[in-house]
Design a protein around this nucleic acid. Structure first.
Length: 479
RNA sequence: GCCUCUUUAGCUCAGCUGGUUAGAGCGCCGGACUGUUAAUCCGUAGGUCCUUGGUUCGAGCCCAAGAAGAGGCGCCA
């Protein structure tokens, strides 16, 4: 068509030279009045408007310019006569790269529900909503690397296939080359994993934490970022069987440093998106506001999306001990009026309704709860001097709940061994983990942030399946 | 895993107390119009009422079982 190099729409929208010829390619978002094509190539939220003098184009060609068809346009940049945009491109030549028969195409140029689009995961990224979500998802991933790199952390790749099942973070997916029908058996009739690929039973990782601790005790400050798998039968808007987790682990940090890091990190990610993706955020915010118009007032968000994000970065997270949280809850109105479904009692984990009350009603901002009873937390968390609690923390966000869970790790060998025995954690399997306490151990701390939960919070979406391109949930592994 | 709700046109939904030919908006298609921004106006087509079984003179509607989807809870990130 032309020897011109393709101009990306993002750069065209940023700075265009009047009367210059450009070559653009993209997918048709709308074709109005047989004259105006809204073209998008994914490089930005904004579309470029292509103006077609339909009198000068072949009718059959114009017919092929349909919703989400892919076209190439050679045209001239001019100042727009219309109100919606500064520049537009007057088409000289149009070539259809990929037609899309509107009779058969399952997406339509109208509002469609997220549930419907979820079933069309191969097309849903072409919508405004999902392209905005996935641009932001990318940007959060970039920002997290930048945050840690700029602060001298090392990105550590922990294994996806693990040989230990002692991490205690949930049900695991087994990894095997055996066929379920005729796996080798031992004399007792058990599956003989000694004959399996790795010579032992292996699983998909549920956390990179234990390995990250190895790295932290050598490189000082490290983080992991990778896929994590939980075979829990969780059917909620905030659980996935395959999700991504960020796990910093820092030598010499105590629980307070850990809380500082969690807060700084969360705010950095939110700020990065506020600074760099205002258009996408504005669109997502408007989408929610439109949707909420049909909802009763009490179900609406207390603040629009961008205001919520600003509020979170501008205010300190509330820090409160588990014990104080219990006291607050027991003195709360819903508790006294018997509105809570579950009882509030020291030693029992906070239920969703209790966390929601703390975050959404009492403090109205992210809350960090620390010093949980040791019996409801993992074996590796550091015992506090009261001998009843451990230096564990959860960071709770409005609307989502737990986004971060972390702790100072137990670095005292004898105490760790005692705890493992109490909780029936096999010492032999974790001898390497105990070695870290025997040979040059030190206080250290870290946490895990659910990546998709952060994406949920920043985009304001309500179902976690809509912030990962190809969600894996119980009964669903399409695409 | 538990509880609740939903399933009717391509999509989103309405459908009265069980009663004749199941409707609307949007989308698609055809036409009109042509500086539009969710364009507008007119018109056409489009249905396994989720599936199976039952009750009934008669079932989209009632009953039973199953399937799929959504939400809440639990587990957690």
């Amino acid at each position: 068509m032309s020897s011109l190099r393709r101009t990306e729409i993002a750069s065209l929208l940023k700075e265009a030279t009047i009367n210059e010829d450009v070559l653009i390619k993209g997918w048709v978002r709308a074709f109005r009045a047989n004259r105006f094509i809204a073209l998008n190539d994914g490089s930005s939220f904004g579309n470029v408007q292509v103006v077609v003098d339909f009198e000068n184009f072949d009718e059959d060609l114009l017919k092929e310019i349909s919703f989400h068809s892919c076209i190439e346009v050679l045209g001239t940049v001019v100042e727009s006569q219309g109100a919606g945009q500064k520049y537009e491109v007057v088409a000289k030549e149009i070539k259809v790269l990929g037609a899309s028969n509107p009779d058969e195409y399952s997406l339509q140029p109208k509002k469609q529900t997220l549930e419907f689009l979820r079933e069309k995961a191969h097309f849903r990224m072409r919508t405004n909503t999902f392209s905005a979500v996935f641009r932001i998802r990318h940007a959060i991933a970039y920002a997290l690397h930048k945050f840690y790199h700029d602060r001298g952390y090392y990105y550590m790749h922990t294994p996806i296939i693990t040989g230990s099942d002692a991490e205690g973070a949930g049900e695991m997916f087994h990894v095997t080359t055996f066929s379920p029908d005729n796996a080798p058996r031992t004399e007792d009739g058990e599956v003989d994993y000694k004959k399996d690929f790795f010579g032992k039973q292996t699983n998909l990782t549920v956390s990179g934490q234990l390995q990250a601790e190895i790295a932290a005790l050598a490189l000082g400050k490290v983080y992991t970022f990778g896929p994590t798998f939980r075979a829990e039968n969780s059917n909620t808007t905030r659980h996935l069987a395959e999700f991504w987790m960020i796990e910093p682990e820092v030598a010499f940090n105590d629980i307070n440093d850990n809380m500082d890091l969690a807060e700084d990190f969360s705010k950095y990610l939110i700020n990065f998106i506020l600074d760099n993706y205002p258009e996408d955020l504005a669109f997502l915010e408007k989408r929610i506001l439109d949707m909420e118009k049909q909802m009763p007032k009490e179900q609406r968000r207390p603040m629009p999306l961008i205001e919520t994000l600003r509020f979170v970065v501008d205010n300190e997270f509330e820090r409160i001990t588990y014990t104080d949280a219990i006291n607050l809850l027991r003195n709360s109105k819903p508790y006294k009026k018997g509105k809570f479904e579950y009882d509030v009692e020291w030693g029992v984990d906070l239920q969703s309704e209790h966390e929601r009350w703390l975050v959404e009603k009492k403090f109205k901002k992210p809350v960090i709860v620390v010093d949980y009873p040791k019996d409801i937390k993992a074996f590796y968390m550091r015992q506090n001097d009261d001998e009843k609690t451990v230096a564990a923390m959860d960071v709770l966000f409005p609307g989502i709940g737990e986004v971060i869970g972390g702790s100072q790790r137990e670095e005292r060998h004898d105490l760790l061994v005692k705890r493992m025995q109490e909780m029936d954690v096999p010492e032999e399997e974790l001898s390497w983990y105990l070695d870290l306490r025997k040979f040059g151990g030190c206080p250290h701390a870290g946490f895990g942030m659910g990546f998709e939960r952060m994406v949920l919070f920043i985009t304001g979406m309500s179902n976690i399946r809509d912030v990962i391109p190809f969600p894996r949930t119980p009964g669903n592994a399409e695409f």
